[in-house]
Amino acid sequence: MDIGAIRKEYTQSGLSRKDLKRDPLAQFSLWFEQARTAEIKEVNAMCLATVRPDGMPQVRTVLLKIFDQQGFVFFTNYRSAKANELADNPQASVLFPWYDLERQVRISGPVEKISKQESFKYFTSRPRGSQLGAWISEQSQVISGRSVLQTMLRQMKEKFKAGTIPLPDAWGGYRIKPVSYEFWQGRANRLHDRFLYQQDGDEWRIDRLAP
């Protein structure tokens, strides 16, 4: 299969320094809302990159659930592969691939667990089925088949058939605390607009990058 000729010109928009907010979180908020308005599918989906102890990078898609001045929060099993990687090297990068708008945002920084209280607050907002799922899945572990999950689901439905489902000990949130943001806008002839925000004390330095 020859895929070398697959090509698309990016012509929707451009990005100049005068368009940028001084605060990268404000710029992200603006683009995120524009992506929501454009009805981008899974607008809060982000590709999360971590590194294994042997140096092999790993990437997967997770969902952003909170973002504010404190950072960007996602939730997972604390015994998962990503959790083990973050325990060894608490640094990560995420990428928001908003292809329909010919945009990408990349954010990097150190990662920390959020408090159990914060995790419980979000956990109780999830649909009951998702709460049960957090108790069932030993994320990233080998299982013999889907029947294992179905059996455990029946057991958990019975166990928690009445009342509030408690927060699993091995489930909660991580917060990425950004030290850099890159905003990427596709342009014609592959001469894309790229702006990098880097933390410089209490301020953010903004540099245009070559495409």
Rank of each mutant, 00 (worst) to 15 (best):
G4E: 06
I6H: 01
R7F: 06
K8A: 13
T11L: 13
Q12W: 02
L15W: 03
S16Y: 14
K18D: 13
L20G: 06
D23P: 06
P24E: 04
P24K: 07
F28M: 08
F28V: 13
W31T: 03
E33A: 14
A35N: 01
A35Y: 07
A35P: 04
A35H: 08
A35T: 01
T37Y: 02
I40F: 04
I40T: 04
E42H: 02
V43S: 05
A45K: 00
M46L: 10
C47F: 11
V51C: 15
R52C: 12
P53Y: 01
P57D: 05
R60A: 01
I66V: 14
I66F: 01
Q69V: 06
G71N: 07
F72D: 03
V73K: 02
F74G: 01
F74D: 08
F74K: 00
F75P: 14
T76I: 07
T76K: 11
A81H: 15
K82W: 10
A83W: 12
N84Y: 13
E85W: 07
L86F: 14
L86V: 10
L86T: 13
D88G: 08
D88A: 15
N89A: 03
Q91H: 15
A92P: 01
A92F: 07
V94P: 03
V94C: 05
L95C: 08
L95N: 05
F96D: 14
P97F: 10
W98R: 02
W98K: 02
L101F: 03
L101G: 04
E102L: 01
R103S: 07
V105I: 03
R106W: 11
R106G: 12
S108G: 15
G109E: 07
I114V: 15
K116N: 05
Q117S: 00
E118I: 05
K121W: 08
R128T: 15
S130C: 12
Q131K: 06
L132M: 04
W135N: 05
W135V: 10
I136Y: 11
I136Q: 10
S137H: 13
Q139V: 04
Q139M: 04
S140I: 05
S140V: 11
Q141C: 12
Q141W: 01
Q141T: 15
G145P: 09
G145R: 03
Q150D: 14
T151S: 11
M152T: 10
M152N: 03
L153A: 07
L153V: 11
L153N: 11
Q155D: 12
K157V: 10
E158P: 02
F160T: 05
F160L: 07
F160M: 01
P168L: 06
D169V: 07
G172R: 05
G173T: 05
Y174C: 14
R175K: 15
R175A: 12
I176G: 04
V179I: 09
V179R: 08
Y181T: 07
E182Y: 14
W184K: 10
Q185Y: 10
R187W: 00
R187K: 02
R187V: 10
A188W: 05
N189T: 07
H192F: 05
H192P: 05
D193I: 01
Y197G: 09
Q198R: 15
D202P: 00
D202N: 13
W204I: 08
R205E: 14
D207L: 11
